[in-house]
Amino acid sequence: MGAEASGYDASHIEVLEGRAAVRKRPGMWVGSTGERGPRHMVFTVVDRAVNDVLAAGTGSVEVTLAPDGVRVADSGPGIPVEAAGHSGGPALEAVLTRWESEKGPKGRHAVDAAPFFSSGLFVVNALSSRLTAEVRREGVRWTQEYEQGVAVGPPVAAGPATGTGTAFFFRPDAGIFETPECSLPALEQRLAELALLNPGLEISLTDERTPDQARAQRFRFPGGTRDFVSLLEEGAGSPLHPDVIHFEREDPRMAGVMDVALRWSDSDEERMRSFANSRATGEGGTHTAGFRAGLAAALSAYGRTHGLLTAADPDFGPDRIGRGLTSVVSVWLDGPEFEGATRGRLGGAEVHACVEQAVREHLSVWLMEHPEQAKSVIGICRLPWNPQDRFDLHSSTVAN
């Protein structure tokens, strides 16, 4: 049937651009019009705040859940305000009203906090019934108001300011989302992860939605991934060695840095978390495959050399080293390659090779220096074990 017979022609095609396109199809940009959508909006704003703070070297991010919205504030340098004549980056209004205006830090130093994809502040603004931006720069506090992504007026100098930073108070549009509120446990887990993976970062989370039951938490972990392993181990049995095995290594072949922490206990379970540029990789990838291969090679070589494996024993395979193992494998890459629509799996063959070599070399040294503990580790790895007996850490909360 032709276009003339069906009555369908170009006049029936609706072309939407910019803010209108975002509000028409919000699920395309934040994943859902359910609770996940507002949560994604929070993570998008947190993403920008954390990157600003880390680019400055240190600092803090504050997330507050209020009865009428969410406030995310940071102690970074503050977004430039065009009305003040600032230069050196996209100005506040451009960041909030244009696609990809805010370039920000890239590569291995950029945190990817949002678990779905990076939608940018423009999308957050477009999907908010109201948004207030506040910038503290050069001793002046600037504010600007928006309604459904449209500026009510220009940035206004609202008085003197101490320190620097940017804050956004926004209300996910109740006309778009089934619920504009966010689940507290989901926020707790992700903010704790960011603080654990970035030891110089401090994040606070305050829930004021029920005034007589206000709750505040602070996430700061100087031990980084070592602290992460200790938290994951809670309820996992007694450690087979007192110290968490930990190392960091940069490798130009993968254009990045790896941060690995692990410890074995007498538990029957395996507990692993993996990340790429602070993004949780729930489906694993080349970094976790390399990690397992490196562990298996080091344990097999040490067991053979020291008579802990008999001639009849096969070498350890990557699926035989998980019993009692708690680990965190984090990589920071200039150009991470994610697979799948939700980017839950890391690609890149060079990552596998680099992580495998580094883990094999570091663990081999540790085994040589700790013979009694090495014997215990190899002993538990020799026990029969089902590789599917892995604790689901991606649905549990990690908090301080």
Rank of each mutant, 00 (worst) to 15 (best):
A5C: 03
G7D: 07
Y8C: 06
S11V: 11
E14D: 10
A21L: 05
V22P: 01
R25V: 15
T33E: 13
R36Q: 11
F43A: 09
T44C: 00
V45Q: 00
V45F: 00
V46G: 07
D47K: 11
L54E: 03
A56Y: 07
T58A: 07
T58H: 14
A66R: 15
V70R: 08
V70K: 00
V72I: 10
D74R: 06
P77W: 07
G78A: 03
V81E: 06
P90L: 04
R98I: 00
H109I: 07
A110I: 05
A113H: 00
S119H: 09
S129F: 01
R130A: 14
E134Q: 14
R136K: 09
G139M: 12
A161W: 03
A167W: 00
P172R: 15
I176Y: 00
I176D: 09
F177L: 08
A195M: 08
A195I: 12
L197I: 06
N198C: 09
G200S: 14
G200T: 11
E202A: 11
I203C: 01
S204K: 03
L205R: 03
R209S: 01
P211Q: 01
D212V: 03
R218K: 12
T225G: 08
R226Q: 06
F228N: 14
V229K: 15
S230C: 07
E233V: 09
E234Y: 01
A236Q: 03
A236F: 07
G237S: 07
L240T: 00
V244T: 12
H246M: 04
R249C: 07
R249D: 15
G256T: 06
V257R: 12
D259I: 00
L262G: 07
R263T: 08
S265K: 12
D268Q: 14
E269V: 12
R271K: 14
N277D: 05
E283L: 11
E283M: 04
H287A: 06
A293D: 15
G294P: 10
G294F: 06
A297K: 15
S300P: 12
S300Y: 11
A301I: 04
A301P: 13
R304K: 13
H306G: 08
A311R: 15
D313Q: 08
I321K: 06
I321Q: 04
R323K: 14
L325H: 10
L325A: 03
S327V: 05
S327K: 05
L333I: 02
D334K: 08
E337Q: 14
E337W: 06
A341K: 00
A341P: 05
G344V: 11
R345E: 13
V351P: 14
V355W: 13
A358W: 09
V365R: 03
W366E: 05
M368N: 05
M368P: 00
E369Y: 01
P371V: 05
V377F: 04
D389Y: 12
